[in-house]
Every structure is written in C-alpha cells, then in structure tokens.
Design a protein around this nucleic acid. Structure first.
Lengths: 350, 350
DNA sequence: CTGAAAGCGCTTACAG
DNA sequence: CTGAAAGCGCTTACAG
C-alpha cells in the first residue's frame, strides 16, 4: 500500500541497470543466467508489480492495442439488440484510451456467411491485436480461430457459446441455465396443477435457433429434476413469425382450459404474445420472455409480460474488451472465460 | 480514434509552450487573458482530452489519492455483510494503483456513535483526499459532512440513504423500491386470495431500522397502487431475535389458515424463518428475503427461501471508489449519485 | 551480456 | 506573464 517498488529499486538492489531488469521482466534474451536469477530473486522478494500506466504510456508510442470488433450489421442501429454489446465495448475502450487501446467495428450480415468470412480475411490481413466477435456461423468461426492462431492473436466470442476444438475465449450466458430460471419462476407461480407452454418464435423458415433449443431444454430439465409429473404437460409451439395466425389457432386451442398457464417465450419476441390474448384469458397467464427491448419493456410496465430474463449483452462486450486488455498487458486470461449470470427483471427493478 | 492530440500539439498550434497550455488546462493563474482565450479555442477545436495515465504518473510523485474508508468493524470479517463493500473498494483501488490511488480502512462500532465520531476526527486531521463511509449515525454523519466541507474533501455515503442539508454523494439501493419488488413477486405467486406477512427481525431492543421501515412501506405501497383490497390483509410481526419463541407463537397463529402465505422478511435474517415452519406448513408459503449470506444461500438452494433480493454491496463499494477517482481527476461526479438496482436471485441464477 | 540515454504525455519548480 | 528543463516508471534502440 505504501511506496511500491519500481524497476529502479529492483535495479539498485540487484546492482544492475534498469535496462537489464526490463529484459528479465519481459523474458527478452541477452541476459546471463546468473543475473537473471538474481533479478528474479529480488523481484520476488520485493513483490514488484509493473506500473501498467507507465508501461502503456511508453508502449502506446509504437504499439497501440487495436481490437477488431466483428458484429452483425444491426449493431449500427441504436435501438437494436446488437448495439448493446458494441456499447459495452465502447465503454471499456473509452476507459482504456489512455493506455493506447482502440477498436474498429466491422460488420457482417446474419443472412450471409460469406460476408463474415470476408471480414475475417480483412481482419487477419490487417494488424489487429485481438478480435471480439460472435460465433454465429459455426464453420466460418472455426476458420477464424485457425487463422487467428496462425498470426497469434486472441479471439473472444460473445453472446453465444459454441464448442470448438481450437482454443478460444468465450463470454456468454448459459442458455440451458436461463431456461431453468424461467422454469422455477413459472413453477412457483403456476404450481403443479396448471399448464406450461414453450413458444419458439422464429425468423426465417421454421428452424429453431440453437440457444432457443438450449433454453427449452433447460426449462424441461428443471421439471425433470424437480417435478417430473409436470413434464408431460409441457406443450411446445414453434412458428415462423410470418405465420402468426396459424399459430394463434393452436394457441387459442390450448387456452380453452381455464387452468393457470405459464408461457415461456425462448427469445426476445415475447411482445408478440400479449396482442393475441384477451384480457379474460390474461387472468390465468404468466408470461416470461427474454431481453429488454423497447416493446418488451413497455409490456412489462403494463403487466402484460411478467418477467424478462436478461443476458447483459452490454456487460458481455465490456468484459470482453477489458479482459483482452488484461490478457495483452498482464498475460492473464481468467476474465475471458466467463458465464454471465441470468438477470431477472420485473416492472419494479428496471 | 486515430492519433489523439496532446498538450504538445496544442502548444504548437497556439504558438506557446506546453507549460502555458498546462496552466490554462488547470485554471492556474499567471496567464494573460489573450493567450488563455487562444488556447481555450485550440483546445475546443482539437477536442483535446487529457491523458489521465500520464497525468497521474507525474502527479502520484507528490500527491497520491488517499481514500479514507470508514466502515463498521465487522468489515474485517470475511464472512460478514460489511466485508462486501470493502471488497468492492479493494477491487477498485487495485485497478487504480497505477494511478497512485490507495485507501486506509478505519472502523467504528455500530453500538457506539462516539467511536464513529472519533474516527471522523482522525480522518479530518490527516491528509486524506476523500472519504467513503456509511451514514449510520445521523447526527455524527452530518458533523462529518460539515468537517469535510471545511477541508474540502468529498464524502461518499454507501449502503443507506439519508437526507442531509449539506452536499454529499450517495450510492445506495432504494429501500422503498426493493419493497415493491418483493410485493410484486409475492403478489403474482400468492394472488388476491392469500395472506401476506411482513416480518421485521431486530437486533437490539425492538426498534425497527430505518431501511426496514422503508422496505415495508414500499411493500405496502405496491398493493396500495395495484390491489388495494389486499392492504388490509397484510400482517406485520416485529420482534427482537432474542424473543423468537414469543414470535413463533404469533406466527403459528397466523399459519392456522390453510391459505397461501407470502412472507417478506425485511432484512438479511430470512434464514431464521424456515426452522420455525413444518414441511406441511411450508407447502403454502413463499418466502422472500434480503442478501446472499451463507445461511440464506443454503436455504435458497434447499428451496426453503424462494427469492433473495440483493443490494450489490460489493458494487456499491466499487462504484464509490471508481466514482471518487473520476471526481478527483476529471471533476466529474455523475457516477457518485447512484441508486443500485434490486437484483433478484433464485436458486438457478446464483 | 550490459549500461546509458532518450522519450511516452503530463506537471511543476525555477528562471527570466 | 512565459519558457525551458527535469522527472514520474517504463521501454527500446544504440553503443560498447
């Protein structure tokens, strides 16, 4: 806590010049084994810790830390979900400008794997020191990891988790776990006698996205572990958002019973549900969804969505950038393997 | 984003030396109005922003930023609640060592206002640059504010909010609001037909602490605004923890009805409830409490406490220290007026 | 294999 | 009222 030792004190105590101390500190060659050992000894004894501010002040002269941020093009839209991780990254970089950190945003189209791959080429051919992106396209993401490994720059994936054989850093929310959170909340409210409905609202075709599947699995696994008898009562409806009317017929059918109903919407589109329900029907319904987008928020305030689970996308971006800085300046990567806890929001704690 | 302008560029553009630029930047006297205006103009045009790392590197030579942290003596105990804000402060200071920031912990006894006042004397007679503490004793806290004002050092209160006439910074959770969070959760689970019970578990005598009162008020205000008919059904039990047996008699009386029961414990002692309830009684009970202490956590995992509200004490300490740094280095205080959102925890999102 | 010197962006005591 | 110089803790190119 008091006057901390610097490179100068180390040098004095070891009877060498500060240049030599620096060489040892950075494992640079050209130091005799004898002095190296001596200096290491002094470092240990004094508990020396590098002054990162001073170090970066000098280093930024030649070597800025340049982070490539590769996100869906929607991150350019202030109201969009994808803007949030970017915002987190911006905040972190802002806190680190004095250390010579900056970032460049590159975008891809989620409908076009090639656009992602092209940007990967651009990035790997430039002089970036790190990459933050989303493992949206599995194969192309693996290619990215391989390319990045060749030029020895770290990659941090955020938002979604994918298993790769290659080393990578990952900051995400455990989708399976968030499903269990939804399940426990609904179970406590609806109880053993009510009904449960999982709704997957898809964009294109009728493919259910990976993290939506995992959320549903988590939801079901909660009941498997805590109340098996309910498992058989859980219905799932999956639909393309363009076929909402067909979907609505099925929904109305399920609503005929007067039992309490717990509805779990596995993505950010819970806001599509309330307009389909009459106020009479609403009396028995509890609705849990994801993400604090404007439409969801408004309905949460109106008590038409009851719980929103939050993935803290901003936090993910923030932690990715801060973590990379720590990795690149202190060679410490323990904040780059991170699962973000599930935040629960109701009207009152927004 | 690209090469940012520094003091050197400003000097060059204004045709003066960097010393003069520095004088203008810090409003130090001895600069002619003419050059001052000129330099201000260049600063604005170039969008110059001080490199805090470089600035602090130089300044730390004479002026470390010394933060006095005055907390209850329990903050020395790793398992205690009061350790958490301290931990947050430690984390923040750790991130700022390179900037020449450190802190000194001073403690007081919560049973002894004089011990607080004594430490205030010690602090104001030393050369601290800022104070982080808790407004536990109202009058003594006001005295602190007055003393601190005299020697012009900022005070940040955390944990609890008090209104003072004197200027002060405050980082806390809105107790009233957290009560409304508990209310909405319980209301959704228990519904309009069940019963509601607020429990105040006190330490000494039978005084209910201020923030416990506010939590109860918040709880009741939710029903006032959302479902008046329930208001009259809310019972309150307040007791000294030493009289648990007397309390238990009353509790058992209230439990005789077979209705669902929502219990809201207004402080961190929810863990005292489950031992008093038979498993039969538990079937109808939902229990909401505060704080992630070990005993509460264990019961949350056993499904005997169902929701825990969290004040993020660590976060409060962290933000206080970081905020002070921003205030002292950039004269920006907007992160020192902060209300921390209510976090909701269940077993699955711990 | 090692040391002395210059400089990152800023601040301050000193000189004029 | 203003400038030139020294130095914060670190890094690196250069000289030996």
């Amino acid at each position: 806590m008091n006057k901390s030792v610097g490179i100068k004190e180390i040098a004095e105590l070891a009877g060498v010049s500060i240049g030599t101390v620096d060489r040892v500190l950075h494992n640079r060659p050209g130091v005799s084994k004898k002095t190296s050992l001596l200096i290491h000894d002094v470092i240990k004894k004094t508990g020396y810790k590098k002054n990162n501010a001073a170090s970066r002040l000098k280093l930024a002269q030649y070597n800025k830390i340049k982070i490539a941020v590769l996100l869906p093009i929607e991150s350019l839209l202030k109201e969009h979900y994808w803007f949030l991780p970017l915002k987190g990254i911006q905040t972190a970089v802002q806190e680190l400008v004095d250390y010579g950190v900056n970032y460049t945003l590159l975008t891809f189209k989620m409908s076009d794997a090639q656009s992602f791959e092209n940007q990967v080429q651009t990035i790997t051919q430039s002089d970036f020191n790190a990459i933050i992106t989303v493992p949206y396209f599995y194969n192309e993401s693996r290619t990215l990891l391989q390319e990045a490994k060749k030029i020895k720059i770290p990659v941090v994936f955020i938002d979604t988790h994918q298993e790769f054989n290659e080393d990578n850093y990952s900051i995400f929310q455990d989708s399976h776990k968030s499903g269990t959170v939804a399940a426990r909340i609904l179970h406590r409210i609806i109880g053993d006698k009510g009904n449960y409905l999982v709704i997957n609202l898809n964009n294109k075709n009728t493919e259910v996205q990976d993290n939506m599947k995992k959320r549903e699995e988590g939801f079901r696994s909660y009941f498997l572990n805590n109340k098996k008898s309910i498992l058989s009562k859980i219905e799932t409806l999956s639909t393309n958002v363009k076929n909402l009317n067909v979907f609505n017929l099925k929904l109305q059918d399920l609503l005929k019973s007067n039992e309490n109903l717990g509805i779990f919407v596995t993505n950010s589109r819970a806001y599509l549900l309330p307009p389909l329900l009459s106020s009479e029907q609403f009396k028995n319904v509890t609705l849990v969804g994801y993400d604090l987008n404007e439409r969801n928020l408004n309905l949460l305030k109106e008590d038409k969505i009851h719980f929103l689970l939050h993935q803290q996308p901003e936090n993910q971006g923030y932690n990715a950038a801060k973590g990379l800085f720590k990795l690149l300046t202190e060679n410490e990567d323990n904040s780059l393997h991170l699962t973000i806890p599930v935040e629960i929001f109701i009207k009152e704690n927004l």
